[in-house]
Amino acid sequence: MAAHSRFTDDIWCTPAPSEPQVSVRKIDELRNEIFLQGYQGEFQQALFQAEEMKSKDLYEKYSPSFRDKNKQFIFKYINEVKHYCPSPDRSLLVTRWKPFLPNLTPENLSPTSTKVTFEANVFKYETCGDNQTVEWYLNFANHDLFAFYSGPLLAQDELQVLECVELAALREYFVQTVNTVGSYTTGSDKSTHKTVPTPILISNTERVINMDTNKVYGNAFAKATERQLIQACVYLSQPQTVNLIAIEAPSHGRGSYTREQVNYIITTCYVGFKAAQLLAYKTHALNTKHQRSSSRSGKNGFRTKIHTGWWGCGAYGNNRQMMILTQMLAAYWAQVEEIIFHTQTNEYDKDINAAREIVEKLLLEKNVDRAIDEIVKLNLQWERSNNT
Results as ranks from 00 to 15, higher is better:
Cys233Met: 08
Leu325Asn: 02
Ser237Glu: 15
Thr105Tyr: 06
Ser203Gly: 15
Thr205Glu: 06
Thr388Asp: 13
Gln49Ile: 03
Ile200Cys: 09
Glu248Cys: 09
Cys269Gly: 10
Glu107Gly: 02
Thr268Glu: 11
Val116Cys: 07
Asp351Trp: 10
Asp373Met: 10
Arg171Gly: 03
Gln132Ser: 15
Pro111Leu: 04
Arg296Thr: 12
Phe273Glu: 00
Pro239Leu: 04
Asn287Arg: 06
Leu153Arg: 08
Ala168Asp: 05
Val22Asp: 00
Ile340Arg: 06
Gln231Ile: 12
Asp351Ala: 14
Tyr62Asp: 01
Trp12Pro: 00
Pro64Glu: 02
Asp144Met: 11
Lys194Ile: 07
Tyr149Gly: 07
Asn300Asp: 15
Asn367Trp: 04
Ser5Ala: 14
Gln228Thr: 08
Tyr217Arg: 12
Lys190Trp: 09
Asp57Ile: 05
Pro111Asp: 05
Gly41Cys: 07
Pro197Asp: 05
Tyr217Phe: 15
Asn103Ile: 11
Leu104His: 13
Ala46Thr: 09
Ala147Glu: 13
Phe73Arg: 09
Met211Gln: 01
Trp333Gln: 10
Ala355Trp: 01
Ser18Met: 14
Trp310Ala: 02
Pro152Arg: 00
Thr14Ile: 15
Cys164Lys: 03
Thr177Phe: 10
Val234Glu: 15
Asn386Leu: 08
Ala169Pro: 03
Ser294Ala: 14
Ser65Asn: 12
Asp89Asn: 10
Glu226Leu: 00
Thr180Ile: 15
Gly272Tyr: 02
Val336Gln: 03
Thr388Gly: 07
Arg320Ser: 05
Asn287His: 04
Val165Met: 10
Gly317His: 04
Asn243Pro: 09
Thr283Leu: 13
Gly255Phe: 14
Ser91Met: 07
Leu236Thr: 07
Ala120Asn: 13
Ile230Lys: 14
Lys194His: 13
Ala355Gln: 01
Glu360Gly: 03
Leu229Lys: 02
Arg171Glu: 11
Leu47Glu: 01
Ser91Cys: 13
Gly218Val: 06
Arg356Met: 12
Thr205Ala: 11
Lys56Ile: 09
Ala168Cys: 12
Ala232Ser: 09
Thr95Leu: 02
Gln72Ala: 02
Met322Trp: 05
Lys377Val: 07
Asn367Cys: 07
Glu260Cys: 04
Ala354Trp: 08
His4Phe: 14
Tyr173Pro: 08
Leu244Ser: 04
Asp57His: 14
Asn214Thr: 15
Thr185His: 06
Lys366Cys: 05
Gly317Lys: 04
Glu365Lys: 06
Asp157Tyr: 03
Asp10Asn: 12
Asp351Ser: 14
Val216Lys: 10
Ser5Gln: 15
Ser237Leu: 13
Ile78Pro: 00
Ser55His: 01
Cys313His: 00
Leu364Pro: 03
Gln37Asp: 08
Glu166Met: 05
Lys299Ser: 10
Ala331Phe: 02
Ile34Asn: 02
Tyr137Leu: 11
Pro99Glu: 12
Gly309Pro: 00
Leu325Val: 07
Gln49Asn: 13
Pro197Trp: 03
Glu226Trp: 04
Asp89Arg: 07
Thr258Ser: 15
Cys233Ser: 06
Val359Asn: 01
Asn79Gln: 11
Val336Met: 04
Glu357Tyr: 08
Ile352Pro: 00
Arg90Tyr: 04
Met328Asn: 00
Thr112Trp: 09
